[in-house]
């Protein structure tokens, strides 16, 4: 599976893109959407909410199940993807561009603990066994 090398990852299948302005864009990985199947509802945290790293902050619901999304890093929610309310299937179509929300990070050290593409690939391989 192609795992973009410009993103960072968590073991719980979120991706993080660090933007030039210092903010972070967050979504769920292609593997996560594949496990869940057709997406029918996405619940995203409100703008202004302050999240702690690994806090449950969003829910993605597919025809099959509901899954929690965890904040990959601490920060304040500064934007949510308005498309997903009416078109949650965007997550199935292209998980790596259908972002859920953007954070202003509050703890730079959080970023160091994220996985790179190779590290995330290993997580997927270990889950497959």
């Amino acid at each position: 599976m192609d795992i973009p090398t410009n993103l960072k990852y968590t073991k719980s299948h979120e991706w993080v893109r660090l933007e030039d302005d210092g903010t972070a864009t967050i979504g769920i990985t292609r593997h996560a959407q594949e496990l869940l199947g057709d997406m029918v509802f996405v619940e995203i945290p409100q703008v202004g909410r302050k999240l702690k790293q690994r806090e449950e902050c969003a829910v993605v619901e597919s025809v099959k199940a509901a899954a929690d999304v965890y904040a990959p890093i601490s920060g304040e929610v500064i934007a949510i993807n308005p498309e997903l309310e009416s078109a949650p299937e965007k997550v199935n179509e292209d998980a790596f561009s259908a972002w859920l929300f953007k954070l202003k990070p509050t703890n730079a050290a959080d970023l160091d603990g994220l996985l790179d593409a190779a590290g995330y690939q290993k997580v997927l391989e270990s889950e497959a066994h």
Binding site: G37, V63, K64, E89
Partner: peptide
Amino acid sequence: PLHYGSQL
């Protein structure tokens, strides 16, 4: 089989 691509 759960689905063959898309349940919807």
